[in-house]
Amino acid sequence: MNWLLVVLGAIVGAPLRYLTDRAVQARHDSVFPWGTYVVNVVGSLILGLVTGLAAAGAAGPHLQLLLGTGLCGALTTYSTFSYETLRLTEAGSGLYASANVVASVAAGLAAAFAGVFLARAL
C-alpha cells in the first residue's frame, strides 16, 4: 500500500514539474534555468511543510509518503539542476552557473525552513 501512495504522488509531481518548468522558462529570456529553480524551491517548501506537520503530529506517514516522497520526489530535480549547472559552465556562463548553485541551495533551504515554521504556526 505504501508504494501506491508514492506512485500516486509521483503521477502528479512529474507532469507538474515538466509543465511548471516549461511555463516559467518560457517567460524568461535568459540562460538561467528559472523553471528548475522554481520547482526545486516550491518542492522544498512543500517538503518542509509536510515535515513540520508530521513533527507536530498533524500529518501521518501516509501523507508523508504521498506528498513528501511521491509528489516532492517527482516535482524536484537534483539531476536536472546539476546538468543545467554543468551546461552553463560548459557554455562559458560561469557566473550564471555559480548563481544557480548558490541561489538554489540558499532558496531551497530557506523554503524548507519556511515550510517547517509555517507548519508550526498552523
Rank of each mutant, 00 (worst) to 15 (best):
G60D: 13
G9A: 05
Q25P: 00
G92H: 11
T76D: 15
G70H: 03
V24M: 04
H28R: 15
L5Q: 08
Y37C: 08
I11M: 12
L118K: 02
T51R: 07
E90Y: 07
A111Q: 05
L67A: 13
Y78L: 15
A56R: 05
T77W: 03
A103I: 14
L75D: 07
N2Y: 03
L88Q: 13
P61S: 14
Y96R: 09
L67H: 05
T51A: 13
Y37V: 10
L5M: 11
R120E: 10
V39R: 04
R87G: 13
G52F: 03
S93C: 12
L86M: 13
P15H: 13
A55Y: 00
V116R: 05
T85F: 06
L67P: 00
G115E: 11
L95W: 09
L65R: 06
V50G: 02
S104W: 08
L47P: 00
M1S: 09
G70L: 06
G57P: 00
L95D: 10
L71K: 05
T51F: 07
T77R: 07
G60H: 06
L19I: 12
L4A: 15
A54P: 00
V6G: 01
A106T: 15
M1N: 09
A114T: 07
Q25Y: 02
T69M: 06
S79K: 14
R120W: 01
V31G: 01
L19D: 07
T85I: 07
V7I: 14
E84T: 10
G94R: 14
L4S: 14
G68L: 10
L53Q: 07
T85W: 05
W3D: 01
A55P: 00
V50M: 12
V116N: 03
N40P: 02
S30N: 09
P61T: 14
A107E: 15
G9N: 04
A55K: 10
A59W: 00
C72P: 02
L45I: 01
L71T: 07
N40A: 14
S30R: 09
S79Y: 06
Y96V: 06
T36V: 15
R17T: 07
L118T: 04
L109G: 12
V12S: 03
V38Y: 01
P15E: 15
Y18S: 10
L19S: 06
S104H: 10
C72D: 11
T85N: 12
P61W: 12
A106P: 00
A112H: 03
L67K: 03
G70I: 03
G52I: 11
V7R: 02
A58E: 09
V12P: 00
V102M: 11
D21Y: 01
C72G: 08
A110C: 08
L19G: 01
T69N: 04
A59K: 04
M1H: 09
L53R: 02
Y78S: 09
Y96Q: 09
T20H: 02
D21L: 04
A99D: 09
V39G: 03
L53Y: 00
F117W: 04
T85R: 12
A58L: 04
V50T: 10
H62I: 06
G43H: 07
L53I: 05
A56L: 08
N2V: 08
A14S: 14
S30C: 08
Y83W: 11
G92Y: 11
E90P: 02
V31H: 01
L49Y: 04
A58Y: 00
G35R: 06
R120L: 11
H28C: 14
G9Y: 01
M1F: 08
A114F: 01
L71M: 06
L19M: 12
